[in-house]
Nucleic acid binder design. Structure first.
Length: 290
DNA sequence: TCCCAGGCCTTGC
DNA sequence: GCAAGGCATGGG
């Protein structure tokens, strides 16, 4: 069991922000995450976050996953003076961090995310994992839990499109099969992409069917940790039109504009900026673990 | 019934 | 090169 301050790492906020679709609220204050084939349960109460894992697992796996080596207070302070709107967004989502997720998982997740809502994205991905991932079990609190790993490119390449449509993936099914085949056959080599800089990596990812500007930026930010990537989706487009008609000051946030993007996105999705009850719409209801 | 959800591909000019 | 239109599906 590892206890850390929730001031700088809020699992609730990260979960709500829809950055990782396999980080779910399972009960009041309880969260479950499946990443890199591992299962992690967490509890966030007041200012304390408890991770139900060993100190060694935290040190070797989760500390890096949650990007704990970076000082987000520095990023947040950059927004304080010149930009009142961003300052409010940063204050609202102060516990958000940019996760270091698996590239393949982010790639597929954000192909699925297009023209889709967060609740349904989670459902699609869970179905995909149950049908094509590997069944595993863990016993974090003595009670056995069953979970499924994220299926690799090998497992999805060659799957009939109709079978994926049966997972609720709709027209994205074609993109998924095509992309899985491209990755399996090394037409796009994800291991090589990991070693590229932002510009080269994005250019390579854009070769994949179903990956456009926005999805490529999400992969670069959430999977490759290129912190300059700035995905522009419907929320960010709206924010840019309303609050930055002369353009967003990227120069001011060089090297971490993507972090600012996440604060803005989360504020629009769940904060006052969202106005019409967006937080209630997107906050997942607790789901039972099977 | 219509609109929207972390867009992208294809077509026609 | 660029603007439209089409695309699955579920929820409000």
């Amino acid at each position: 069991m590892v206890k850390i301050s929730a001031q700088d790492l809020s699992i609730r906020q990260i979960s709500e922000s829809g950055q990782c679709f396999r980080l779910n609220r399972t009960a009041q204050d309880r969260y479950a995450l499946v990443a890199f084939g591992r299962y992690l349960e967490m509890e966030q109460q007041g200012g304390c976050l408890t991770l139900f894992c060993t100190q060694e697992e935290y040190d070797t796996v989760w500390s890096r996953y949650f990007d704990m080596e970076n000082d987000y207070a520095l990023y947040r302070s950059a927004a304080a003076d010149a930009d009142p709107y961003l300052a409010r967004a940063v204050s609202f989502g102060s516990g958000i961090r940019i996760l270091r997720q698996d590239v393949w998982e982010v790639l597929l997740s954000f192909i699925i995310s297009q023209q889709n809502n967060i609740k349904r994205i989670r459902k699609c991905i869970e179905t995909l994992c149950e049908r094509y991932g590997e069944r595993c079990s863990a016993a974090p609190g003595g009670q056995e839990i069953c979970y499924y790993t994220f299926p690799g490119a090998d497992a999805l390449a060659g799957v009939p499109e109709e079978d994926l449509r049966a997972c609720g993936l709709g027209y994205r099914s074609r993109y998924i099969v095509s992309t899985a085949e491209s990755v399996r056959d090394h037409k796009v080599d994800l291991e090589a992409v990991k070693r590229m800089d932002f510009r080269a990596a994005k250019s390579e990812l854009l070769k994949l069917c179903g990956v456009g500007e926005k999805v490529a930026d999400c992969i670069c930010l959430f999977g490759l940790h290129h912190m300059d990537a700035f995905p522009v989706d419907t929320h960010i487009r709206k924010i840019m039109d309303e609050h930055y008609p002369a353009g967003f000051p990227f120069e001011r946030y060089r090297g971490y504009a993507g972090v600012m993007q996440q604060y803005l996105f989360y504020y629009d999705l769940c904060g006052q900026a969202g106005r019409t009850g967006a937080a209630e719409r997107t906050a997942e209801k607790p789901t039972a673990q099977s």
